[in-house]
């Protein structure tokens, strides 16, 4: 068994176990490469049945246009059910990263939005594409990760996970986040995408894109809502994205990698870790753990 076979089989095992142990599962679909792999595993795990759960996209209205197009195309091609949630409070207030700051923007659209969507539809188990290698606080999160009735994560009160025996019992109102890609690294994800020919959003590959350089990050001018600062003029540069999020908060990297193979070569040679492009992680030291305790995925 190669390491990719092993990771795939473990992911399938986790997904089957989670579905068998829950009443209303859902897959959190963020449209990124990890979500693409997660969806691919779901198709394998339940074949010849379709994945027995809907996809949930907690949208912020600030995603790249290409992400939304890719999402809708994927769902239509695979015949899956998609639930899109917009936090109505954010819609009413027009929350955006410029006037409200990246922390508030992320908290209200994503963290609060996710809680609303899970509560409204009474989902008791949500699959996510998080990996332990992404960030230090993730390294200790369980595959089956519990959330209290108000969606909080208690890092000091996690259940030990032994062998492949996941304890999925919970009290009414509590929910579980399940991470089938826990043991995958960024490189594993790309190697698997290559091997399985999994479609991903084209933004992951280098192309000439209009960007401005802002606070050390290359921000793509994806539509006319990005307020330009004095002296900023969008210029076309050959860039790609290592992670995808809200376009004003996601930095591009200069790259010439236009194929999966070239992306893998770039990843192997990378001198910066992938979350570096995320503006929100750098707000404060230990910020990911703080967000997670409050219910961020």
């Amino acid at each position: 068994m190669t390491h990719l076979d092993w990771l795939e089989s473990e992911g399938i095992d986790i997904m089957r176990e989670a579905v068998a142990e829950s009443d209303r599962p859902v897959l959190l679909y963020s449209i990124g490469k990890d979500s693409s792999v997660l969806l691919h595993l779901a198709r394998k795990a339940f074949y010849p049945s379709r994945p027995p759960f809907p996809l949930l996209h907690v949208d912020t209205t600030w995603k790249f246009q290409e992400m939304i197009a890719f999402r809708d195309r994927t769902v239509a091609e695979l015949g899956l059910e998609l639930v899109v949630h917009h936090n109505p409070e954010c819609v009413a207030l027009g929350v955006n990263p410029f006037e409200h700051g990246s922390a508030t923007h992320t908290d209200m659209w994503k963290t609060q939005g996710l809680r609303q969507a899970l509560d409204e539809r009474r989902f008791d188990l949500a699959f996510g594409g998080a990996r332990r290698d992404e960030e230090a606080s993730r390294a200790k999160e369980r595959v089956f990760s519990f959330r209290t009735a108000d969606h909080r994560w208690e890092p000091r009160d996690q259940r030990p996970e032994l062998w492949r025996l996941y304890n999925a019992r919970k009290a009414p109102g509590e929910s579980i986040r399940v991470f089938p890609l826990s043991n995958w690294t960024e490189l594993d994800i790309w190697q698997y995408i290559e091997r399985e020919r999994i479609p991903v959003v084209p933004l992951y590959f280098a192309a000439e894109r209009p960007v401005v350089e802002r606070d050390g990050a290359l921000i793509m001018v994806d539509d006319d809502r990005l307020p330009l600062r004095p002296g900023e003029r969008p210029e076309y540069r050959m860039v790609r994205f290592r992670t995808l999020g809200c376009y004003p908060l996601t930095g591009a990297v200069p790259s010439t990698a236009t194929t999966v193979r070239e992306v893998i070569e770039e990843t192997v040679a990378a001198t910066t870790s992938e979350r570096q492009g995320r503006v929100i992680d750098r707000d404060q030291s230990g910020s990911m753990e703080r967000k997670k305790r409050e219910g961020y995925f």
Binding site: H3, R132, D133, K140, P155, P160, N183, T185, L187
Partner: peptide, 13 residues
């Protein structure tokens, strides 16, 4: 707690 780390060489992951 238990933390999981990942690394790879030419020979193994």
């Amino acid at each position: 707690d238990v933390a999981y780390r990942y690394f790879a060489t030419e020979a193994r992951t």
